[in-house]
Nucleic acid binder design. Structure first.
Lengths: 208, 208
DNA sequence: GACGGTTGTCGAACAGTGTTCGACAAGAAC
DNA sequence: GTTCTTGTCGAACACTGTTCGACAACCGTC
């Protein structure tokens, strides 16, 4: 017997993947798919918004696990030397880029979630998720081994920049294609990752 | 006598600036502020969504004008030499960064607009605005003078990356503060711009 | 076994949303 | 004077997320 709360999360996740716009995600449809009543959402999660947050949290954990697993694999391969900068950047931005281009992935849960976070009236709800960046600290340590002239904060800033570039390709694909005159194939994740590596690596070079 | 359509745009703009969440932007409030009936929105613009698009378009034009004016000023100052890379990057990302930190600016119109664009069911409505990048072409030309080893498309890609980094600071301020351990004052636009310049300029260096 | 109390489920009702539609008015064109 | 267009308004519609009271199922305690 699956608990209703779990069934709601699973229905919400599935619906978020199918739907092309958040307007199509309604409490009644979630409840129907979960085989329960709409009021069950409020009862178990407080609101529909918090149900979506709980759903996204699960997916985020999977994404971050994939990042760390890629990073660890790179560390193992290069051991005892530190892994190449390009491999670390690839581990950081690779999973999101691949997910965003894979229709079978759960990436749409995340993209819908971030757009919901921006629209919400109660920003506090999102604080715990936004501040959860332990996985980034792991990256920070390895990056510093490659760029000892940068402080931990400076490395953190560059990680943030890399993620900003990643968002630009996963969110504004159309705009990117216009700006690059379609010379980059933004439907090929490996090419996109290579291009990101190309601009991010120089950020870690020693100052001239 | 101001036409009703104009009054609606102005009311929408004002409301978008005051409001902290898009949920607070309702047809009835817009109509009330404009001194007309809610149905006037559908009559003049087709839908509330299209009214917001028309409102955002006006603001975008002002932002892009400011960018080009900064770029031209830099060109004049440096003439006949090309302006410094840092000044061009500043002209590109500076206006959005300053607006986003100035409560008196109309930046909230734009941030609400982009979050609405992501949620919409009808992406086609936004295509004209997203594809409008003539102002970026002007930047592209000047960047190339500084980095002749890059193709126009490669320069466009770097412009896109710079804008992605910009979005990261204007949208995810909280996350940035955590990642950089509050060593960067993200409420000071000039410091933020300097930090962006610091990571973007190396992207244009010649390959090693 | 009988009894409260907790926990969960359901459906009706509520206040709110954007949009549609028919009625009506003002003005221009003929 | 009539007809057509343009614009405005308010009532109505279908929909939204959430609340609330009724009811059922379970649990521990007497």
């Amino acid at each position: 017997m699956i608990p209703t709360a779990t069934k709601l999360i699973e229905a919400c996740e599935k619906l978020l993947c199918e739907v092309s716009s958040l307007e199509e995600l309604t409490a009644r449809r979630i409840a129907e798919l979960a085989g329960t009543a709409p009021s069950a959402i409020s009862y178990h999660f407080g609101s529909q918004e918090q149900l979506v947050i709980a759903t996204a949290e699960r997916v985020y954990k999977q994404l971050n696990a994939e990042r760390l697993s890629l990073l660890n694999a790179a560390v193992q391969r290069a051991h005892p030397a530190p892994p190449a900068l390009s491999e670390m950047v690839g581990a950081l931005v690779g999973p999101s880029v691949r997910w965003s281009l894979d229709p079978a992935s759960k990436y749409k849960v995340l993209s819908h979630f971030t757009s919901m976070a921006q629209r919400s009236r109660d920003q506090e709800l999102y604080r715990p998720l936004v501040e959860g960046i332990e996985h980034h600290r792991v990256f920070s340590a390895h990056f510093r081994a490659h760029a000892p002239w940068l402080s931990e904060a400076e490395v953190g800033w560059r990680i943030s920049c890399a993620l900003g570039i990643r968002s630009q390709v996963t969110r504004n694909r159309l705009r990117n294609e216009v700006l690059t005159q379609s010379t980059i194939d933004f439907s090929d994740p490996e090419e996109v990752i290579a291009r990101i590596v190309e601009v991010v690596v120089p950020m870690f070079r020693a100052p001239a």
